[in-house]
Amino acid sequence: MAVAADPPILALRGVSKRFGAVRALTRVDLDLQAGEVVALVGDNGAGKSTLIKSVAGIHPFDEGEVRFDGEPVRITHPKDAADLGIEVVYQDLALADNLDVVQNMYLGRERHKALGVLDEESMERSARETMTALAVTTLGSVRQVVAGLSGGQRQSVAVAKAVMWNSRVVILDEPTAALGVAQTHQVLQLVRRLGDRGLAVLLVSHNLHDVFEVADRIAVLRLGQKVADLRADATSQQEVVEAITAGELADAAGTEVDAS
């Protein structure tokens, strides 16, 4: 899908983040190309969550550069990320249980008619179109309350919510963590379709099986540094595991490395 000559949609250059004495991220480089699914793996505390939260604008990087379409940008607030077209699907999904699927997908960006009255029908139609385009067929009614959905359905709603805003980068935090086998498969297929639709996808996962099923590229974080960036079809689970547990740290002069 991606044309090799294009600059990456999102490029991180030497980004760092510390919380007090703890170095959560140290000079990480990462490129996300259109149409590419990149998996971000690493042990607990490796910095995966910090990285996605910084990209999402929840706590900005301390140092380094973020480029979007080749242009330097500053993401200091979740709205900055949303304006650029970066959407994050968090592990705990962040759906409002008592709202239905359409209401959740449009939460915060409702469409209006005159006098501030919500345009429910137009929102419902687009929501259904998005679901159809993403081939989410298991859902049934888009007017169901989210509380009644299964884990896989909820994940699908969260993903659909993220991609219906002309978003260009979608970050998924452990999207299959709480799912059974069949539902995991559904969600991974959905992730793959996002890539095939030309989005840049960053998949954060613990599960190497999942990662190898959908990812084009695998970036490994260890103790806040990127220790490997491998093409999925040119590596093995063993190599990735080695990088996760023992990847060589570019321990520049005098840099203390705190396990967090």
Binding site: D97, N98, G108
Partner: peptide
């Protein structure tokens, strides 16, 4: 409704 249902979801939705 959203705030009463899940304030964190509402916050993340802007």
């Amino acid at each position: 409704y959203a705030v009463g249902s899940n304030p964190e979801a509402a916050r993340r939705a802007g």
